[in-house]
Every structure is written in C-alpha cells, then in structure tokens.
Design a protein around this nucleic acid. Structure first.
Length: 877
RNA sequence: GGGCGGAUAGCUCAGCGGUAGAGCGGCGCCUUUACACGGCGCGGGCCGGGGGUUCGAAUCCCUCUCCGCCCACCA
C-alpha cells in the first residue's frame, strides 16, 4: 500500500464482482471502519443500527434502508468523525422459534427433560410431524439455526459494502445483550416502573403467549350478529345482539347506554342468560351505543377490551371459558363464579361446547340457542375488525394470567415530549410516533410464555403447599447476570430446592424480544457496565429504521432511555421508505424469486445496488425498478473510464497533487469550471449534513456527467499538448482536482469503484489510505484559484460546443467532421467570455480558427448566442 | 371514524412562488484514439379535478376524487 502506482498498473478493465470482493477484504484487513475508543465524544458519530430479525432471509427492502444509513455514516467518517457503526442480529423471540420450527420440524415441549445427546435431524420429509423436544434442546437448536442464518446475513452485508465495525458485532441472544436486558429489567423494578400483575391479557392461542398492544393488528373478518333473548327478573325479556354467542356462559352483566330511554326501567334489575341460567345485573354504561344492534349488550369475560374495562370498573366476577389453547375449558355451574339458577341444564349445555375451539363452539351454540328458542331470527352476517397478533392466524383472546408489565400510561406526556426532542427525518414521521403514544391503552406487557429469549432474572418462593409467592420475588444480583432462573437457583438456595414446598421456582417466561432490541444503544454503549464507554456512545447521533416499526422499535427505545436515564436515545432518527412492487404493494419476501439481494448484487454489482438505494429520499416509498441499478452500473463504469482517462494524462505529464496544485488553475475555462465544482461541494455537503444523501448524489451525478460530456471533451486538446505550458498545467491541475472531488463525493454511494480509482494514484498522496477515511472535499482545496474571475466562460463554451455537435448530428456526420464556417452572435460580455476559451472550443469541434467569427447580435431565445454552422464538404482526412 | 403521505412525460422519480426537468423506454444518427457496459440529437406533459391568494402557482390556501400507510373498545 502507499506505493506510487505506475501507469501500467492502471487496469484496462474493471471486473465489478472480483474488485468488490477484494475491496471488502482489504477494508477489513486495514480496519478502515473501526471505531476508535480513544477519541473523545465530540469527534464521534454514533449510529444505532437496527439488528435485523433473524427469522428468514434479508430482502431488497432491508438492502434499501441499510444502505441509507451507510451512506450517512460514510459521509461523517470522511468528514473526520470517529464513526461508531455497529451491527447486531436480533436472534431471539417468536419469529426465531417459528423459523426453527419450520427448518428443523421441532416443537418445544415443557414436559420433556433435557437430552444432552440429542441432535437435530435435517433429513426429515416435508410432511413429517413436528418432533417434540425439551425447551433446553429447543433453545440449543435455535442457536444452531440462527448461527447459520447470521453467517448468510453477514456475507450479504459485507458484499453490499456496509461499513460496519464488525468487531462490535452482537447477537441479542448472546451473554452481553442478555446481561444488559436483565440489568434493564432490574433497574425498572427498582424504580417501580416494572411490575407483575395477574390480569386479563391479550393472548395468542396458537403460540400460547401473552402479546403487547404494539404487536396486534386489526383484520377485517366475517362475523354475524346473533340476537339472543334474556328473561328479566322483573318480568318480560330483552334482546341483546352479540357476535360472540359462544361466550354466553361468560356473561357477567348486561349494559345499555345510561340515556337510552328504552332500558331506563331495567337498570338495577337482573337478567337471566339462556342455556346457562346465570343471573346477571343490568347496568348503564356509556360504552353502549344505542344505534348499534338492539342498543343493549352483554358483557363477557372477555370478548373485547371494553368488556375488560367494564368488568374491572364494576368488580364483576371472572368467568373464564376459554383455555390457553383456545379451547373451551371444563367449568362447573353449581358454584361461583359460574353459579347457575339451573346448574344441571347449564352443565348439559356446556357439555356440548367443552373442548371445542372458539369457532366450533360458536357453530354449536347457535344450534343450541335455536333449539332453546333463545335465538331471535337468524344470525345477520357482517364484516368487522377483529384483533390479531400480527403474526397470528386466530383472533386474540383475553386470558387472565400473571405477566410482567412496564409502565407506559403514566408517562404518556413525557414520552411525547421525548419524541419532540428527537429530530425526525423526514419531519412528518414524528406524527406517527405521537399518534401511537396518544393511542396507548395499556402498559407494556413484556413477558412471553415462550422459550428462546432473555429470561427474567427472578425466582419465587414456594410456600408449604408448594404455591409460589408472587408478592415477594427474589431478584438476581446484578453481578450474577446473565442468569437463567430456569436452570440456576437463586442466591441462598440449592438446586435441590427447585419446585419443592418451601423451596423456589424460577420465572418460566422470557422477555418480549423488543425488551432487548429497545436497548440497542445501551448494548453498544455497555450501559452500567462501562460508564466511560457509555459516556462516549450514548445518546447516539442517528437511528435509522423503517416506518412500520416506529410504534415498536423507535417507541420502546425512547421508553427505555427515558425510564432509565431520563434521556433521549438518539439525536436524530432517519426513516426509510418501503420498496413497493410494480402494483405499489409492499414488496414481500414471498416475491423473492429471482430478485434476491444476492442475485441483484451479482448481476448489477454492489455499487449499482447502492446507487439504486441512494437515489431514493428518506421516507419515500419507491416502486422497485431494476433499471435504476443498470444506471448505477453505467455510472460506476463511467467513473472507471473517465478516471483512467484523466489519470493517464496526468501520468504522461508526471503530474501529482504536489506538482499540479489547485493554484496552477488559471485558464478562464478551468477557473470557471472550478468555481462550479466548489459550488457543487458546498451543495453536496449541505445535503449530507441534512441527511439528504439523495440530493447530494443527484447533484454530484449531474455535475459529473456534465464534466464527462463537456469539460473533458473541450479541454482534451489542451491537456494533450506535447510541450508543457501554463495552459496545459492549468488543464491537468483542473482534471486532477475534479477527479479527486468527484471520487470523494461519490464515495459514500459507490464505495468500491471510488476506492479503486482513488487507489490508482491518489491514495499514495494520502498516505496509502482508503478514500473512505477522507478527508471530505472542502472549500480550502480551492485556495489559490482566482475564482473571482469566473465569468461564465464554461457555460459559453458548452453552448457553442452543443451547437456544433447538433449541426453535425442533424447532418448525419461524425463528430470529428470539420466545420467550414462558424458564426457566433451574442452580447459583448458573453462574446468576451467565449473569446477567452475559444481555442479549446474550436479544437474540440474541429473548427479552424480562420473559419470562425464572433459578432455582436441578438442571441437565440433562452440562450447566450445565436450560431451559424456550416460543415465542410469533405472530412478532410 | 381520526392522523400522515402521495397524485408531474409511456415508466421510475426530481423540482416545491418566477419561462415545465432527469434517467430509462421510443425515434433518428455517429465505429469518436477514456468509455459501443459508449456518444450526439429529436420528439413526448391542461404538473389528478375545481375554486382561491398573487403581477405571476406544479409550487401557497380551501375543496373534491383516487392511491398508500398508521391508528381506533371490534357488542
């Protein structure tokens, strides 16, 4: 490295795939992207990279948004910042378990004991039944599969040229992130921000775990209103409408709107449910809508959130019909809480439903109600929104269970305020955050009844009957973390006391995966473990992410930073848009037939794919268009060719940055071009500083094509000159300056080709270092150029050149065809500017000096000049 | 039902108060010694509809229509 590259070493061709692979290796070898822990906070730029979920393959949308972050990180690195750009893998939680279940055909079964000799088998037929394994074996299988997936992820990210400091790589399932997540939990408990509670919680019956509000979504589902006849204690009857007749046995009240005249007389009375003969109170409730159904409805434990709230407010009994597996559980009607006025008939009815799924039970109870005469008319089909776990296939149910929660509702205003302290790019994305915070209706349920994840560092004492005491948990000591209470005993106990009366039980749950990933800044900064490092890395400067996870990842990260340290986690958040398919739908993994990121990289090159991503502005959803990648490849190729051309000329003349400094630029054409170049540097820099890499790329690209099409052509003859002269010296100095500037302005977007061309000649003068450590171009590099003399000569030269080319093209002649006569008319100041650069223009256009005349006159509309071009009769060669 | 974004050339997108832009695609040329993985040039647009503000609006305001996204207690 660092040796002067001889002319013969400038390659004749550039093989994208091979060159890119070589650069990836070299960057890693030379630690180009390492964060330097020794440098002060003020010189550091910290990126809080999203750890992608390891549950399948990365798709083109990931490539898109991860490239955006890389463009910005690379800019700041070239600006001299000590960039801390880590990467991690989010490899715990339900998505991971699902992946392992699919790949290895496994299912965790808590009743099985650990088998140290068990190995996963990969030769199972696709239709083989799931194999039950112990939770611990399952967790080991997860780690195995995740490690394989992560190797593929890493290869892709390296191939794409993302400038991570791979020495900082973390996995959320590994010891350090687990330690941070458990420390976080203990801190929240100590601050009173985390608590456990037995309460009705949203529950996915397939995965059999609690889920949080942020992981739910509404789906339009077919359903039906069923009108059911209840008898009233004071005589008569009433008819309620319900979409969930299978919950009739869970009915604990009947409510109507307090102002509803039809039901005023019934408030305070009781109604008796059909089939189950439970006496339930009739009460007013503002949540009843007089316009809907019959205006009177039953409250069950639990049909929806409104039921939960009314039940809680009124202190009604809990009649839980649905079990954790989504099937109707055994119930007795001869005692509380299901006390029936006719237990025998209630039990008879229930026998028809017990063990059935919700769907089966609904179908069966309609038949029972019809036979009983309680069904008024027939069910009326409707389509209505139903809550689902976002990855679930059956509706959520409310399950009364004990869960750990983190307080959110009491902090609503503070969280809104924290959101305003962060700069959002684009700014309107903050509305989504605020929208979400304002719509919060429950604290964050952080416990999951799953296996692969960060366990809670908590045990419970067992009383003499072996019942756990949830009021006085035993918490782990911070120095013992990470700990798995499912395997290790609490301080002061032995393993023999596990599960026995007067012994202990470990908390069986794991944390919501967001409880860990929401700590990504603290995982990187080693929060509480290394205060000096934390000071240098927290809060981060930038969080890049996609907009669909504002309510989860961005939100929870803000929550954690606030609850732990009353801080914001980062100063800026940059939100990428989505890649849409040609029908403007979100591009999904399932469409990944030939358009996998890996195949696109091989087909178009990493620079081309990065260019494609870099053209899209933050927050803008963009239709997938492979044409743009072809453009990117064309641009990269052009850089190679223009670079080679300019460097060969410099080489011929023995020109170096030292021998041909910017101060040698004096020719009017060059001065004018340099002035435009300096303007470009200012614009591109300002755009990058505002996180607008796309505007920077666009401005640079526009200027570069102009450089190739016009400047390079016009200056060619002067630069080629055999005898050294100040004019030639000025041309070479300008070529050198321009190439150095363009390569660096393009370097964030096209890191491979730029470092390649840079290495041919300029790396030597930069101590052999990669272009990616800078420095970024600045106004100082233009010192010594008499920019105040810039007078529009370049624009004048370009216009006349274009006219000459146009004349040749419309005459269907080659651009080398000589011009017999050229007349240029315009205003005197423009002619003066042109006159100074005329030799270059004429040489490029193959016009003899004697064939050209300039004259005062009116220019063509919207132009500097009007021209007459007459071509020679013969090519003259 | 509430909120946010978008609608500009056939396509993908810039422009966001001062004479409609780029690339691709189309058409027509040019073997030009950095590049045929090229170059030159030509066509092509009531800037979604309707109102308003302004000397002037694709750009600001109002309204409507579509498209997308986020959110909402769903009996």
């Amino acid at each position: 490295m660092g040796k002067l590259v001889a002319m013969s070493e400038i390659p004749q061709s550039y093989e994208f795939a091979k060159a890119e692979r070589d650069w990836v290796e070299r960057w890693e070898r030379e630690h180009v992207y390492r964060w330097d822990p020794a440098r002060p906070r003020g010189e550091t730029f910290v990126v809080d990279t999203p750890p992608p979920t390891v549950s399948g393959s990365l798709h083109i949308g990931h490539v898109f948004s991860y490239t955006h972050a890389d463009l910005i990180a690379r800019f700041w690195r070239m600006r001299g910042k000590n960039v801390a750009f880590p990467i991690g893998w989010d490899d715990n939680g339900l998505p991971t378990e699902r992946r392992v279940q699919n790949v290895l055909g496994l299912r965790p079964n808590a009743r099985l004991a650990y088998d140290p000799h068990w190995q996963p088998r990969r030769d199972k037929p696709a239709d083989a039944p799931l194999e039950d394994v112990s939770p611990q074996n399952f967790i080991e299988a997860c780690k195995l599969v995740m490690a394989e997936d992560e190797a593929v992820f890493e290869a892709l990210w390296r191939r794409l040229g993302l400038s991570y400091d791979w020495s900082q790589l973390y996995r959320t399932i590994a010891a350090h992130p687990q330690r941070v997540a458990q420390l976080s939990f203990l801190d929240l408990v100590a601050k009173g921000e985390a608590y456990s509670k037995f309460a009705p919680t949203m529950w996915d019956v397939d995965d059999q775990t609690a889920v949080a509000q942020a992981e739910t979504e509404d789906r339009e589902q077919p359903g039906a209103y069923h009108d059911l006849r209840f008898s009233v204690s004071s005589g008569g009857e009433l008819v309620i409408s319900t979409t969930r007749p299978e919950l009739l046995g869970a009915c604990v009240a009947v409510v109507a709107h307090p102002d509803d005249a039809r039901y005023q007389a019934l408030f305070g009375k009781t109604a008796r449910t059909p089939l189950f003969h439970a006496e339930v109170p009739i009460r007013p409730s503002p949540h009843a809508d007089p316009e809907k159904g019959t205006g009177i409805l039953m409250v069950c434990t639990f049909g929806d959130q409104a039921d939960v709230e009314f039940w809680r407010a009124q202190g009604l009994p809990l009649r839980q019909l649905i079990g954790p597996d989504g099937r109707m559980r055994p119930v007795r009607f001869d005692r509380e809480p299901f006390q029936s006025a006719n237990p025998a008939e209630a039990a008879r009815s229930w026998r028809e439903l017990e063990g059935k799924t919700v769907k089966q039970a609904r179908a069966r109870i309609v038949e029972l109600l019809r036979a009983d005469g309680a069904l008024v008319g027939e069910p009326r089909a409707i389509v209505h929104p139903v809550k689902f776990y976002e990855r679930g296939s059956r509706p959520l149910e409310f399950m009364p269970t004990r869960q750990w929660f983190v307080r959110l509702l009491v902090h609503r205003d503070a969280l809104l305020e924290q959101g305003r302290k962060v700069s959002w790019h684009p700014a309107h994305m903050r509305a989504r955050y605020e929208n979400w915070v304002q719509g919060l209706n429950q604290d964050w349920c952080v416990s999951r009844q799953r296996f692969s994840g960060v366990p809670f560092p908590v045990w419970y004492r067992l009383d003499a009957k072996g019942e756990p005491d949830h009021e006085r948990p035993i918490f782990a000591r911070p120095e013992d973390l990470p700990v798995d209470p499912r395997l290790a005993p609490p301080p002061g106990y032995t393993q023999a006391q596990r599960g026995v009366p007067n012994g202990f039980a470990g908390d069986a749950d794991v944390m919501d995966t967001w409880a860990t990933s929401s700590l990504s800044p603290q995982i990187m900064s080693h929060w509480t473990l290394d205060p000096a490092r934390h000071e240098k890395l927290f809060p981060a400067d930038m969080r890049p992410q996609a907009h669909e996870i504002i309510r989860t990842w961005a939100f929870y990260t803000i929550v954690k930073a606030y609850l732990h340290e009353r801080q914001i986690p980062w100063k800026n958040i940059v939100i990428s848009g989505w890649i849409l398919d040609p029908n403007r739908k979100k591009m999904s993994k399932s469409k990944g037939n030939v358009t996998t990121p890996a195949s696109l990289l091989e087909q178009h090159s990493a620079d081309a794919v990065r260019y494609w991503a870099g053209r899209a502005r933050l927050g803008v959803d963009t239709a997938f268009d492979e044409q743009v990648m072809k453009l990117g490849k064309r641009l990269a190729t052009k850089l190679v060719n223009a670079g080679r051309f300019a460097l060969l000329q410099l080489e011929r003349a023995g020109a170096t940055p030292a021998s041909h400094p910017a101060s040698a630029i004096a020719h009017p054409l060059d001065v004018d071009f340099a002035a435009r170049l300096r303007e470009l540097v200012a614009r591109a820099t300002a755009s990058f500083e505002a996180f607008d890499y796309a505007a920077a790329l666009q401005a640079t690209e526009e200027a570069f094509w102009d450089f190739c099409d016009n400047y390079l052509e016009i200056v060619k003859v002067r630069a080629y000159a055999e005898a050294p002269s100040p004019e030639q010296r000025s041309a070479l100095a300008t070529l050198q300056l321009a190439l150095r500037v363009f390569l660096r302005l393009f370097a964030p977007a096209l890191p491979f080709v730029c470092d390649e061309v840079w290495s041919w000649r300029f790396a030597e003068s930069a101590g052999g270092r990669s272009i990616h450590v800078g420095p970024w171009p600045s106004a100082e590099e233009f010192a010594g150029i008499p920019l105040e003399r810039a007078n529009g000569a370049y624009a004048a030269a370009c216009e006349v050149s274009t006219r000459i080319r146009g004349a040749k093209t419309s005459a269907k002649k080659s651009l080398r065809w000589p011009v017999a006569r050229l007349v240029v008319r315009g205003a005197e100041p423009d002619l003066a500017a042109l006159r100074a650069v005329l030799p270059d223009v004429l040489a490029a256009g193959v016009v003899d000096t004697s064939a050209c005349s300039l004259a005062s006159g009116a220019p063509a509309e919207g132009a500097l000049f009007s021209t007459e071009v007459e071509l020679a009769a013969q090519s003259g060669e």
